[in-house]
Amino acid sequence: MTQKKRITEEKWEQLLNEQVVSDKDLNRLVMNYLVTEGFKEAAEEFQKETGTLPEVDLEELSSRREIRQSINEGNIQKSVELINELDPELFDNNPNLYFHLQKQKLIELIKSGNQQIALEFAQELGQLCEGNEELLNELDEVMALFTFDKLDNSPLSFLVDNSQRQSVSREVNSSILSTQKQEDESKIEQILKTLFYCQEELDKKIKFPKLTKENLPTGNLVFSEEKK
């Protein structure tokens, strides 16, 4: 096997430093992210500090932010009510989204220890996804939580982790943005997807320092192992 050409970390950083991105463009990316994620207060403060104008009226972010917050706090019923107030047709157009919120409600009931209420609600939820094998499989996975005394130590602990709430929150946020004819993910997320794809393609030809998903918080570049 021919060994790939290797670019040193020093050389790669030099090449990166030669790429100039204006502060104005960076500020637009940050503002786009804050707006997409619904961070109204942060967007307002960022606008004051940088003069960067948002692409939408920041008052429109309040509803999305409140919905996401209620989901992240485990108050699913409140989030459903808020969604219906914001867009009464959203669930009609996206029944899977409604199911995922109700599934999260079931998870919250199980986590709280309300076994009887959770079982009764699970039966209702079973009727909701009747005939849909994919949703039934998702429900079966949640139902398996009933068999564990300590949910945090079970093989399904990911269902009761806060990341599960955040996943549902992101799905709801994305659906709302789509109905409002806005991009359902921030430009930063789009850029990162393109970056990882380009790194994967370039890695077929040369060995170079990469930005990994694990190193995103620090921005540190690392060399991956040669593929055998």
Rank of each mutant, 00 (worst) to 15 (best):
E59L: 04
E60N: 05
L61H: 04
L61N: 03
S62Y: 11
S63A: 12
R64A: 07
I67G: 03
R68Q: 13
R68W: 03
Q69N: 13
I71F: 08
I71Q: 08
N72P: 00
N72V: 10
E73C: 00
I76C: 00
K78T: 11
V80S: 04
E81L: 11
E85H: 07
E85T: 09
L86V: 01
L86K: 14
L86P: 00
P88H: 05
E89V: 08
L90F: 08
L90S: 03
F91P: 02
F91G: 02
N93P: 00
N94D: 15
N96C: 06
N96W: 11
N96T: 07
L97T: 06
Y98P: 00
F99E: 01
F99W: 05
H100N: 14
H100E: 15
H100F: 08
L101F: 03
Q102L: 14
Q102A: 02
K103P: 01
K103D: 02
Q104E: 15
K105H: 15
L106Q: 04
L106R: 00
I107H: 00
E108N: 02
I110A: 08
I110D: 11
K111G: 09
S112N: 10
S112D: 11
N114E: 15
N114S: 14
Q116D: 14
Q116E: 15
Q116I: 08
A118R: 02
L119W: 00
L119N: 13
F121E: 02
A122S: 13
Q123L: 15
Q123K: 15
E124A: 04
L125A: 01
G126K: 09
G126E: 03
G131S: 09
N132E: 12
N132I: 12
E133I: 09
E134M: 07
L136E: 14
N137D: 14
E138D: 13
L139S: 01
L139H: 02
E141P: 02
E141G: 04
F148L: 09
D149E: 13
D149Q: 11
K150I: 11
L151D: 06
L151I: 06
L151E: 06
D152L: 09
D152T: 12
N153H: 10
S154R: 05
S154Y: 02
S154L: 04
L156F: 13
F158W: 06
L159S: 02
L159G: 06
V160Q: 01
D161Y: 08
S163G: 05
Q164P: 00
Q164A: 14
R165K: 15
R165I: 07
Q166Y: 12
R170M: 12
R170T: 09
E171K: 09
N173C: 11
I176Q: 01
I176T: 05
L177V: 10
S178K: 15
